[in-house]
């Protein structure tokens, strides 16, 4: 795999005060690859996901997107972030904007599209995630699953090269998890490059090209889902899997 790398992390280190949250992380995500990051809470998987578009800064190491190193704060960083969509655990839809405005805002302000053009694309995407009829509503009027699907449409509207998912289903009721996972499955089939932090092992098995297992700020395993789930190498992963797959 990884013939044509899109996201490259080299020897990335990050600290929260004395806590060494990311330790010598090396990870390459190829174009069209779906990489699922799993691990116990506090293992640094969300932080890792957030460093890729520099919502978290790093102390040392390099992160490259499509061959370009991540710039420091400023216009160049904003430009690069527009190429990487992000979906958050808590959706983070703009509370003062309607669903349609949420999806259109950055298209107009960042991509410079005309309002009609942006709204047309927004409606197409809302239709794709099954929410065309919700366009005039405010986020608070939607269910969690619907909000998350709007958030995915909002990220897709920028025509990103890759999408980052930071525990996209962790704040959802069990019933709503599937509607979000289905949208993500479809994206994976369409060849979108995705980095997904999740606890959904079913999704990891069926949609991922690779599973990255993290523990205590390190990448412990980086293998195909089949190999990882049937025959984990490390004790830490065995222990983790035995706990979550018991029920």
């Amino acid at each position: 795999m990884a013939v044509d790398p899109l996201i490259e992390l080299h020897d990335v280190n990050k600290y929260f005060g004395a806590l060494h949250v990311l330790q010598d992380i090396n990870l390459t995500v190829g174009k069209g690859e779906v990489v699922v990051i799993i691990g116990p809470s506090g293992s640094g998987k969300s932080t890792l996901c957030r460093t890729i578009n520099r919502l978290e800064t790093i102390e040392s190491g390099t992160i490259k997107l499509d061959g370009q190193p991540l710039p420091a704060e400023g216009k160049a960083l904003a430009k690069l972030r527009a190429e990487v969509g992000m979906v958050f655990q808590s959706f983070n839809l703009f509370a003062h904007k309607t669903v349609l405005q949420n999806v259109s805002l950055a298209q107009i302000k960042v991509r410079g599209r005309k309002k009609e053009e942006a709204d047309k694309r927004s409606r197409e995407l809302l239709d794709r995630v099954g929410l065309a009829s919700q366009a005039p509503k405010y986020p608070a009027q939607l269910s969690g699953g619907q909000q998350q699907r709007v958030a995915i449409a909002r990220a897709l509207a920028m025509n990103p090269k890759a999408l980052l998912f930071d525990e996209p289903t962790s704040a959802l009721d069990p019933e709503m998890i599937n509607e979000v996972l289905e949208v993500m499955q479809q994206l994976a089939r369409d060849g979108m490059t995705m980095v997904v932090v999740t606890h959904e092992m079913g999704f990891a098995r069926s949609a991922a090209n690779r599973v990255v297992f993290m523990s205590d700020g390190r990448i412990v395993e980086d293998r195909t889902p089949e190999e990882f789930f049937t025959n984990p190498r490390s004790d830490r992963a065995k222990d983790f899997l035995s706990k979550i797959l018991k029920h």
Binding site: L55, K79, R81, G85, N92, F94, A151
Partner: peptide
Amino acid sequence: GQGEAARSLGMT
């Protein structure tokens, strides 16, 4: 998260 979402979309 509101600010983070905006920044992640490339807004200055």
